[in-house]
Computed example of a mutant assay.
Amino acid sequence: MKKKTMVLGASTNTERYSNMAVKKLQLHQHPVVAIGNKIGTINDTPIIKETPDINDVDTVTLYLNPTNQQPYYDYILSLHPKRIIFNPGTENKTLEKIATEKGIQTIEACTLVLLATNQF
């Protein structure tokens, strides 16, 4: 099943894990929305700076440290994702608690590993 995934903290820098995640998600044919602090593209996926209203987001995968996540709390919750993946270095007990209270599954895991092991 293909899962529309938002990569929050996307970067055009090919050495960044967020960039690798967008590419791996594309490779596995998951629709990707990439949001970052600089406009650009990763393959054919545009990186946008805005926070557009997007429907049917299955997963939000985070590549922002907890401090940089704070301005996005309301936005993430407004998307009503089924789950949020906290990649290594993005663990955030506050956001995890808020999300869980709203019925959103939270996972502390690496998106790249989940994709590589068919657990995504």
Rank of each mutant, 00 (worst) to 15 (best):
L8C: 06
G36C: 00
M20W: 01
K102R: 15
V32A: 12
L27G: 11
T106S: 13
G40I: 02
L64N: 07
T117K: 03
V57G: 10
F86I: 02
K102M: 03
P52Q: 03
Q29N: 15
F86K: 05
H30W: 09
I47R: 09
I54S: 12
Q29T: 15
E50A: 14
T117A: 00
L114M: 11
A116S: 15
M20E: 11
M6K: 00
I98E: 02
M1S: 14
P52A: 07
I107V: 13
P81D: 00
L95Y: 01
H30N: 14
R83T: 10
I85P: 09
E91W: 05
L79H: 06
I35P: 00
S11M: 06
N13V: 06
Y17D: 14
K4S: 11
K23S: 03
T61P: 00
Y73N: 10
V7C: 08
M1C: 14
V32C: 08
A109I: 09
T51L: 12
V33D: 01
G40H: 08
P46Q: 01
A109H: 03
S78V: 11
N19K: 08
H28N: 14
K24C: 02
D44H: 15
Q105N: 01
V22Y: 05
V22W: 07
A21L: 01
K3N: 00
I47E: 05
F86L: 12
K4T: 11
E15S: 15
N13H: 03
L64K: 05
P66F: 01
A116W: 08
E96H: 07
G9L: 08
N55A: 15
E50I: 02
E96L: 05
Q105F: 04
M6F: 00
Q29W: 11
V7Y: 01
I47V: 04
K24W: 05
T111V: 06
I47H: 04
E91L: 10
K2S: 13
P71G: 10
P71N: 07
K23L: 15
K38I: 06
Y73R: 13
L8M: 13
L95K: 12
P46C: 08
E91Q: 13
L8I: 04
K93T: 12
L112M: 02
N92E: 08
N87Y: 04
T59G: 00
L62M: 07
L64C: 08
L25E: 02
V60T: 11
I76H: 04
L77S: 11
T5P: 06
P31Y: 03
P52K: 04
G40N: 10
A116K: 14
A116N: 15
M20I: 09
T117I: 10
T67N: 13
H80A: 15
S78C: 09
N92I: 10
L64W: 07
Q69T: 08
E91V: 10
Y73P: 14
G36P: 03
E50P: 01
D74R: 09
